[in-house]
């Protein structure tokens, strides 16, 4: 259960992080002089770090063994 949950966590995080990086790179490369595209790129990357950190903290605090016992019991 723990390994499976960890695998799913890593997979989802990787997909969303990769999408964020690609979008941020687009903003960074294709902005026009003097516009807010670099700021948007920074906001996206920083917010993704916050989302990942929050998800990691929640993932660590979940008692996966307990869940395995309950689900196994069912």
């Amino acid at each position: 259960m723990t390994i499976g949950a960890f695998f799913i966590f890593i997979l989802f995080s990787a997909i969303l992080s990769l999408a964020a990086i690609i979008i941020a790179l687009h903003f960074w490369r294709y902005g026009v002089q003097g516009d807010k595209s670099k700021l948007l790129s920074m906001i996206l990357m920083l917010s993704c770090i916050v989302f990942f950190g929050t998800a990691l903290v929640i993932f660590i605090t979940v008692p996966w063994n307990l869940l395995e016992q309950i689900v196994g019991g069912i």
Binding site: A20, C48, F51, A55, I70
Partner: peptide, 19 residues
């Protein structure tokens, strides 16, 4: 552990909506 799992799903949902 259900609350933790639900919170985890909620965070991924919000992250995907943000993207």
């Amino acid at each position: 552990p259900f609350l933790g799992v639900m919170l985890l799903v909620a965070i991924f949902w919000m992250w995907a909506a943000w993207i």
